[in-house]
Design a protein around this nucleic acid. Sequence first.
RNA 1: GCGACGGUCGUCCAGUUUGGUCUAGGACAUCAGAUUGCCAAUCUGGUAACCCGGGUUCAAAUCCCGGCCGUCGCACCA
Length: 487
Amino acid sequence: MNTYDEIIQLALERGFYFPSSELYSDANAGFWEYGPNGARMKNKFLDLWRRELVRRDNMLEIDGSQIMSKNVFKASGHLTNFTDPIVKCKKCSSSFRADKLILEVAKIEVSEGLENENVDDLILQNNIKCPLCKGEISKSERFNMMFKIEIGPNRDEAYLRPETCQSIFVDFSRLFKVSRGKLPLGIAQVGKSFRNEISPRQGLLRLREFYQAEIEIFCNPAKLNDLNKYDEIKNTLLRFYDTRIVELSVEEALEQKILPNKLVAYYLALLVEFFDKTGIDKKRTRLRRLSDQEKAFYSTVAFDFEVDTSIGWLELVACNYRSDYDLKSHSVTSKTNLEVMDDDTKVLPHVFELSLGVDRCIYSVLEHSYFIDRQNDDRVVLKLRPYLSPIHAGVLPLIKKQEFKDKASKLLSNIRKDFDVFYDESGSIGRRYRRLEEIGTPFAFTIDHQTLEDDTVTVRFRDSMNQERVKIDEAHSFLSKQLFTLS
RNA sequence: GCGACGGUCGUCCAGUUUGGUCUAGGACAUCAGAUUGCCAAUCUGGUAACCCGGGUUCAAAUCCCGGCCGUCGCACCA
């Protein structure tokens, strides 16, 4: 069994995540839900993201609507660009990307934005048949990846957002004013996005409904190298991938023109430092600069932050320099001037974005934390960083006798409001330790015979299996210290 | 979306070839009780499944059709 299968089995057995609507047989693919352990872990992951990015850089966080009007996506380009021309074979009903088919058969380069009629003409003129069965090709259709919905009794057209950032762009003008913002300004948002993927697969890795944590940095394009906080990160090591992975400091990468400017460098470094604290192995990550073909339609410079997993390299964060693409087109479509003052000059800000896929990150953290301890009867240990663990500590009376339970209650009441704790009195103590470490619980407090004498409990460490004693009254400060030490 | 293969307790698997004691079996997990008490102990008992719909048949987990889901390949993945 490979690691991917082991993770999905753990996720199902321990309630990290599982398919949505699984009670019914018409449940659609691409929808998964987080159970209690997954939800706790996701919340903690996002807390860390807030700590290391949003608060560190004094960004603003908003929470926007998931349903947005048609004009938003007209302006954003998604209505025209987020769509592919599809043709089908009338005989075997295989479907093909029309632009790819024309390129392949007739060697004619066509834009995917080409009108349907022109696509049909090209197919007719070049006598293109189905490559599989030589059947006749149908007229082309558009498949838009956005979910279209209807609003109110008039059934007004609207869409579920395919990325969270559009509300940040649409709200930018107000946010800049009400928060007395100054460029560069980061605006962040966590929320659901929706894409009607053709074939969602592999659990959390390709979803139709998924969480993004996005950051849009609004900046003055004339001042991309004018950044005081640059010194904080100039020595941070980044791993770039082209044909092989090269590790360079931010400063070196700027000198070698791998990074275009200090602003992009600064935020990529913040991102990498954040991931260092998630427990994802830095040696199995890379920043990959995208070629022109791979880049999104709005992007001028793009890096993907990728992580190596048992099923290959996985894109976790898309880092795009979107220039003024978004604000300009929203400005034109809405007929509103979205320029702001930066010192004495009026500028239409440019945008650098860090668009993070939360669900993929959760999977990656799980996979990089998954450990089978061959030294100790192959016990399964999820070596999550303590602050990401769904349960911070277990509370276990060694014996099911009342005086042990009373001490356990006392300990629980000291810590349960500030920490996620799990009380367990069923089964042998060893079995209870194993159950806790399988979901990543870093500490277990055991109420034993000595507790009755001196009010201390055993604290057992997940990774080393070592044991120490702490006073019941000091368990709270013990946990605080352990959990806030971000290594 | 196409093609190949598959879908049985929470998990993994047996049973399908050749329809009939399958009233669906096992292991692990889980729950209760007993016993024990610092690293998956033991015993007893329990909970718990044939993906959904239709068809063939005296009889369907088993055969047929459709749908859904999964794995792999192609395609897709702004």
